[in-house]
Write a protein that binds this DNA or RNA. Sequence first.
DNA 1: ATGAAAGCGCTAACAA
DNA 2: TTGTTAGCGCTTTCAT
Lengths: 365, 365
Amino acid sequence: MVHPGHGDSTSLGAAPRNATIQDVADAAGVSRAAVSKVIRNAYGVSPQMRSKVEAAIAQLSYRPRVAARAMRGPSHTLGIEIAQVSNEFLTMIVRGALETLVGTPYQLVVAPVTAPHETGNALQSLADRQVDGIIAISPMVGEAWLEALSDRIPVVIIGRHDVSTHYDTVAGADRSGTDQVMAHLFDLGHSRITHLTIDNAREHILVDDPTDWQRSGREPHAIRHTVYTEQMRRRGLEPEVLYTGGDELEAQSSAAELLARREPPTAIFAGNDTLAMGALRAVAEAGLGPADVSVVGYDDITMASHPLVSLTSVDQSGTRIGAEAVRLLLERIAGRTESVQVEEQVHLRVRGSTAPAPHRGTTTE
Amino acid sequence: MVHPGHGDSTSLGAAPRNATIQDVADAAGVSRAAVSKVIRNAYGVSPQMRSKVEAAIAQLSYRPRVAARAMRGPSHTLGIEIAQVSNEFLTMIVRGALETLVGTPYQLVVAPVTAPHETGNALQSLADRQVDGIIAISPMVGEAWLEALSDRIPVVIIGRHDVSTHYDTVAGADRSGTDQVMAHLFDLGHSRITHLTIDNAREHILVDDPTDWQRSGREPHAIRHTVYTEQMRRRGLEPEVLYTGGDELEAQSSAAELLARREPPTAIFAGNDTLAMGALRAVAEAGLGPADVSVVGYDDITMASHPLVSLTSVDQSGTRIGAEAVRLLLERIAGRTESVQVEEQVHLRVRGSTAPAPHRGTTTE
DNA sequence: ATGAAAGCGCTAACAA
DNA sequence: TTGTTAGCGCTTTCAT
C-alpha cells in the first residue's frame, strides 16, 4: 500500500519534506493517478473524488513539482537571450514578453550574453533547461546554428531579418526607419552626418562558414549602417562611421572625441538610443546644443520623449515586439509549423534634438 | 543490456530524439553511472574511460537534461520577484544579479508582480519551480508568510528592513538617505515641500494579522515617508504627501496637478527616481525650472546623472544591491544558516534639479 | 470512474 | 575503478 521508499516516516520527527502526490493520494485514500487527474483538471473524476482530493491537497498544502512534470512533458518555461541588459530598448522587449506571459502557466528565464561569441552558450544553456521555446534578440550566431537549434525547439528571433523555414522572426523595418532619419536630416540641411554605431556591427554574425558573411546584412545595426552609407553616397556625401562600445558612457566619450575634431559633424545619427543618450551627454558637456549639432537616435526609449531630453528617434515599440515574439512562440508550441516573419512599422518621432544645420562660412571668424 | 523502453528503435527512421545518458553509455560501452561521473567530474574515472565517454558525448552531441537532474538535487535556478519591470532601479537590481551569476551554473527566472496582492502568487510560482533560492524585492506580503517560505528555501529580501532568523536582507539606509534629502532642501531654504510617493505605500504590506501593521514601517517607501513627515514636523512645517501610481507618466500628471494649485510647493521630494522623472516632466512642461521648483529623487538611476536631466538623487547602487543579494543567496545555498542583514550606505548626489527656494512675497504681484 | 504499473533521464548508494 | 540498482515525483496507458 505504501509507496516504496517512503518508509514509515512516522517514527522520528523528520524534517517534514514537502508533500508529494503519493502523500496526497494516501491522505485521500485514492490512487496517485486520481490525484494527478484532479490537479490537471483531466476528464473522468467524480465530484466526490474531486472534493476528497482537494481537501487532502489543501490539508497538506501540496504543490506539484514543476521539475517532475517537466520530465514527461512541457516545462512551461520560456527562455530569452539578451545581449545587453543595460540597454533600455532590450529590457523593454523583456518587459513586453513578461507582460504577455501573465496569466499563462509560462515563466521566463533570462540568459544574458556577456560577449558576442558567448551567444551560443547562452542559447545552449536555455536549451539544456528544456525550455519550451526560445526568444533570441539579434543573436550573433550563424543561420545554420539557428536552424539546428530551431529544429529541436521553437525559436523566434527578434531583430534579424532572416527568412527561415524553421524559426519565426519579429523585426522593425530598419531600412524604412533609417530612410526616415536620413531624409529628416537632409531636409534640415545637414551634410556632415556621422553615424555612431556599435563596435561589433561588423562582426555581428559568428560565421559558420565564409558564405555566411553575405547574410550579415540582416542584423539591424548592419542594415542601419548600410542604408546610412547608401543614402550619403546617393547625395554625393562621404559617409563617416564611428564605432563605439554599446554602453552609454562609452558612446559619450566617443562622441566627445568626435566633437573635438577640427571639423566636427553637424549631425550625429546614433545606431540606438543608448548611444544617442551618450552623444547627447557629450554635446551638452561641450556646451553645445541642437543648434550646433543635431542628434538622432533609434528605438524611442522612454527617456527620448522626456521634455528635458527631447530626442528625435525612430519609434519601434520594444514592448510590442516582445509581446509579439511571445505570441508567435506560443503559437508554435500550440502546433503551428509554417514559419512567419513579422515586420513592424516604424515612425520617426521628430523632437527637439534635431535642428537646421548651422550656417557655415557665412560669418568670418 | 538495452535499457527498457528504449526498444530497438533502429527500425524506422523515427525522429532522432535527443540522446540520453543511456545512449551515451551504450555508445561508449560503459554504464550509465560511469557517464554520470564523467559529466559531473566526479571522483573515480580512469583516463581511458573518460576519453571514451567524452568521445561518445561529442558524437551524439549529448546534453544532460536539467529537469532530470533537478529531480535528484539542485535545479541550479534562482528566482527573482520584481514588482515593477518598468522601474529602472528595479531592473538595475536584476542586472546586478545577472552579472554576478555569470560563470556560475545558475540561471535566473524572473517573476513579475502585476498587482500588490499578487506578490504571494509570484513567489509561490518560483517555489513550485524548485528554484534553489529566491530574491524578493520589497515583497508586499507579511513577515509570517516570508518566514514560512524561507523555512523551506533560501530567501533574501531586498529593500525591507526586517530582522528575521530565516531570511537575509539587503537594504539601503533609507533613514539616512531621507535625512540627507531633507537637510539639503532645508539648507536651500525650502519649507513648502511635497512628498510624492507611490499609491500603495500605505498598504505596502499584505497583513497576515492586524499586529503586522506595525511592521509596515520597514518597507523603503514607508520609511522615506515617515522620515519625511518627522523632519517636516520637527521644523514646525506641515507635511504634504501626494500619492500616485508607480509609473512615470502617472507621476507626471499627479505632479502637474500639484503645480496647478494656488500655492504649489517650492520643492518636490519623490519617493524614487521614476516618480522624480515624471515630476520633472511636469515641471518642464509647465515652463518652469529648478529656480521655481526643486525636484529630488531617490535611487540615482542612470538618467539622473545625464546633463540634460541632472537630477539630485540619493545614490543606492541597484547593481551592487542585486549582486550582494545573489552572493548572500549563494552562501545560504552553500550552507550558511545564520541570517545576515546588509545595510548599504547611501549618498545624496546634489545636481542641478535643486536650487535655493524662490523668494516669496518680496515683490508684489 | 478508478487504480496498477511502467516509465521520463538522471544520481547515488552499494556491490563487485 | 566500474557496474547494478533503486529511486526522485509525476503522467499516462491500460486494465478493471
